[in-house]
Design a protein around this nucleic acid. Structure first.
Length: 576
RNA sequence: GGCGGUAUAGCUCAGUUGGUUAGAGCAGCGGAAUCAUAAUCCGCGUGUCCGGGGUUCAAAUCCCUGUACCGCCA
C-alpha cells in the first residue's frame, strides 16, 4: 500500500469557477484520488480556496461586505459546489486560515535566515482617497500614445501599448475615481529565486516522465531572457498574511502582507493541518504527509493544475521549499492541463462566457459533466466544448453503451427469472469458452485501464473504460440468452448470471469517473462489495445464484435535441 | 517583437524511443438481432499526416524553413 498525497490548484475566492477551471485541476485530481483509494492506497487529497489579494477585496467591496465575511461566504458556496461535483477532498481548506498564516510566516522566516530574501524599496502609486497603493491595472487615464481615455496603468486596451501608471494623463483610481494620486516609496520583500536557478534546473531536468507541457513551461521561465527573476512576495494590502519573520515582527514591514502567490501553495500544507487540527490529532498527523523527517519520506506527491499555474508550482513554490532548508516534501509529479475552449472561443470568468459550475449542476447531474469533461480532458492540447458533441457523446457513452446495458440485462432477468441472480447447476462459466474468452479480454483491458489511470492518462483511461463497457453489449449480443431461454433455459441462466455480475464489475471500475451512477449500480445489485477486480474471474463470481437485486431507474436519461437547443441559447451570451 | 504549444478521416482526437498496407470514437452507409433508454452488435475509410526542403535503407515521427490558429511574456 502506498501513501499518495494529491493537491489540486486552489481556486480563487472571488467567484464561481467555470468548467474549464474544473477540468484543469480539481476534476482530474479527484479521478486520481478516487482511483488510488479504490486500489486500497492511503490517500490525502487536498484543495482549498485562495482568498487573499486585491481582487478579493474589490469583490467584497462590490458585494458590500467586509472581506473576511465575503470570503467565508464564498468559501461555503465553492465547497457546496465541489460537493455537488462529488470532488472527494479530504479537506477543502482556506488560505486565510490561522494554520496558513503561521506556516507562511514560518517559511518567510526560514528563507530570510538562509539569505533568500532581499528588501527592496520601490515606487508605487498611492491613492489617499482609497487609502491604499493601487495595482497598475486599477489605475486608468488617458493614453499618451493614442489619446484613448480609459487606458489602464499596465496597458492601453485601445492601442495595446504597454504603459507605466505614471505615463497616464489625468490618472484616476478605478475604485473611487480619485484623481489625487501620488507616487510613494514603499519597501517590499523579494524572494531570491535567481539564486535557486541551477538547483531548480537540475531538479526539473531529472523529471523525465513529467508532461512536456509542465517541463517546457518551467524551462522557459528558467532560461528565457535573463533567466529566472526574483519576485516580490509582499504587498501593501490589509487582507492577507501579515509579514512576519516566523513569529517575530519584521522591522520596516509593518502593515504589509504576503502576496497571494507566496501563501497560496503553502496552503496545501496548511489545509492538511487544518484537517488534523479539526480532528484533534497531533502534529505528526499532518507532518507524516509533509515532512520527510517525520514520516513523509515514502509519500508520493502529485499536483494537478492548469498550465497557467505551472510556473508557480515548478519554480516559486519549490524555491520556497528548498530555500527553507528544512526537509519539506517536494512534489514528485506535476500533471498539467491545457485549456478547454467553449464553442469556438475561450471560457472566461471575467467576461462570464461559458458554463459555470453552479449552472452546470442546475441542468444535469454531476456524472454527465464528469464523464464528458474527463473523457475530453485537454491533455495534449486545448480541447473544445460544444453542445452538439456534449449531447452526442454523453448520450452514446453513458445512456446507450453503459446505461442501456444495465437496463437490458436486469429487465431481461426480471421477466424470465425474477429479480434474483438465476441458478444453473448444469453450467459454470469456467467451463464455457465464450465466458472464459470474455474474462481474458476483460482482464487485458482492465490491466490497460489500470496502467493508464496510474499514469494519469485521463482520456485514454476513459477510452479504455468505455471499451470495457462495450464488451458487455458484445457479449450479450453473441450469447443471446433471450434465444437460449427458449431451448436451454439453464444456459440462459448462466449467461444472465454472468452479465449481472458484469454490472457490479462496471460499478467498481467506473466509480472514479461516475461515482453516483456507480453507487446506483451497486445498490441496484444489492451489494456493498466494491473490491477491485484483481482477479476478474473471481470478481464475476461475487453475486451468486439466489442473490436478490432490483431493476434500477434509468441511469442516464438522454439529452434531447430540445434540451440542447435551450441550453445552447441560454449559455450563448455572457453571465453578469 | 521574444518564447512555447498545436496543425493527422466530415467532427473530436490516438499515434510510445523513426520501421510492415496511418488508427479509435462520433457522424454517414449497409446488414444482423429484437433482451433493452429505437438502445445493441457486425461490416464499410481514394486521409497531399498544414506547405516546402533536408537527414535516412526507412519520416506523421528527426533537422531547417514557410504558413495558420492558440497562449504566455515584454
Amino acid at each position: 500500500m502506498d501513501r499518495i498525497l494529491i493537491t489540486s490548484a486552489i481556486p480563487y475566492i472571488n467567484g464561481i469557477k467555470h468548467l474549464g477551471n474544473l477540468v484543469g485541476s480539481q476534476l482530474p485530481a479527484d479521478l486520481f484520488a478516487r482511483y488510488m483509494r479504490g486500489r486500497g492506497h492511503e490517500v490525502m487529497f487536498i484543495c482549498a480556496t485562495d482568498e487573499h489579494g486585491t481582487p478579493a477585496e474589490l469583490a467584497a467591496a462590490k458585494a458590500g461586505k467586509p472581506v473576511d465575511e465575503f470570503c467565508a461566504e464564498m468559501h461555503e458556496v465553492q465547497a457546496e459546489i465541489a460537493q455537488g461535483f462529488r470532488l472527494s477532498f479530504d479537506n477543502f481548506g482556506r488560505s486565510s486560515s490561522p494554520q496558513n498564516h503561521a506556516l507562511t510566516q514560518h517559511f518567510a522566516g526560514k528563507l530570510a535566515e538562509n539569505g533568500y530574501i532581499r528588501e527592496v524599496v520601490e515606487e508605487q502609486v498611492y491613492s489617499p482617497t482609497d487609502g491604499r497603493f493601487l495595482p497598475d491595472r486599477y489605475i486608468e487615464g488617458t493614453c499618451p500614445n493614442c489619446g484613448y481615455d480609459s487606458a489602464r496603468g499596465d496597458q492601453c486596451d485601445n492601442c495595446t501599448k504597454q504603459l507605466d501608471p505614471t505615463d497616464l494623463i489625468n490618472p484616476y483610481s478605478t475604485e473611487s475615481g480619485a484623481t489625487d494620486l501620488e507616487v510613494r516609496e514603499t519597501k517590499h520583500l523579494h524572494l531570491r529565486q535567481s539564486l535557486m536557478k541551477d538547483k531548480l534546473d537540475a531538479w526539473i531536468n531529472s523529471k523525465h516522465d513529467w508532461p512536456i507541457l509542465t517541463t517546457s513551461i518551467a524551462k522557459k521561465w528558467l532560461h528565457d531572457g535573463d533567466g529566472l527573476q526574483d519576485r516580490g512576495i509582499t504587498r501593501d494590502l490589509h487582507w492577507g498574511v501579515p509579514v512576519k519573520k516566523g513569529t517575530e515582527d519584521w522591522p520596516g514591514m509593518e502593515g504589509k502582507v504576503f502576496y497571494v502567490w507566496f501563501d497560496a501553495p503553502i496552503e496545501y500544507i496548511a489545509a492538511t493541518k487544518e484537517l488534523t487540527d479539526a480532528n484533534g490529532e497531533d502534529d505528526v498527523a499532518w507532518q507524516r504527509w509533509w515532512r520527510e523527517d517525520k514520516g513523509a519520506e515514502d509519500v508520493k506527491y502529485f499536483q494537478f493544475m492548469g498550465k497557467d499555474n505551472v510556473p508557480f508550482h515548478t519554480l516559486s513554490f519549490p524555491s520556497t521549499i528548498m530555500g527553507s532548508g528544512e526537509p519539506w516534501k517536494l512534489v514528485d509529479y506535476i500533471k498539467s492541463f491545457n485549456y478547454l475552449n467553449y464553442d469556438g472561443g475561450q471560457f472566461s470568468t471575467s467576461r462570464g462566457r461559458g458554463v459555470f459550475m453552479d449552472q452546470a449542476l442546475e441542468i444535469l447531474p454531476a456524472d454527465y459533466w464528469r464523464w464528458w469533461l474527463l473523457s475530453h480532458a485537454p491533455e495534449s492540447s486545448d480541447s473544445e466544448f460544444t453542445w452538439e458533441t456534449f449531447q452526442a457523446d454523453v448520450n452514446k457513452d453513458l445512456a446507450d453503451v453503459l446505461g442501456n446495458f444495465v437496463s437490458r440485462i436486469t429487465k431481461f432477468c426480471r421477466s424470465k427469472f425474477g429479480e434474483e441472480v438465476p441458478a444453473s447447476p448444469e453450467f459454470a462459466y469456467q467451463d464455457s469458452e465464450q465466458e472464459t474468452q470474455l474474462i481474458a479480454e476483460l482482464t487485458l483491458k482492465i490491466r490497460v485501464y489500470e496502467d493508464n489511470m496510474a499514469k494519469m492518462e485521463v482520456r485514454k483511461s476513459a477510452q479504455e473504460l468505455r471499451a470495457i463497457w462495450a464488451l458487455g453489449n458484445e457479449y450479450l449480443q453473441a450469447a443471446a440468452p433471450w434465444t437460449n431461454f427458449k431451448t436451454n433455459p439453464a444456459l440462459a441462466a448462466m449467461q444472465t448470471r454472468f452479465a449481472l455480475n458484469l454490472i457490479r464489475l462496471y460499478a467498481v471500475l467506473s466509480a472514479p469517473f461516475i461515482p453516483d451512477a456507480s453507487e446506483k449500480m451497486l445498490s441496484a445489485m444489492k451489494t456493498e462489495d466494491n473490491s477491485w477486480p484483481s482477479d476478474v474471474s473471481e470478481a464475476l463470481n461475487t453475486l451468486l445464484a439466489g442473490h436478490a437485486f432490483e431493476v434500477p431507474e434509468v441511469l442516464f436519461a438522454k439529452i434531447t435535441d430540445e434540451d440542447r437547443e435551450i441550453w445552447q441559447e441560454k449559455f450563448s451570451g455572457t453571465r453578469d
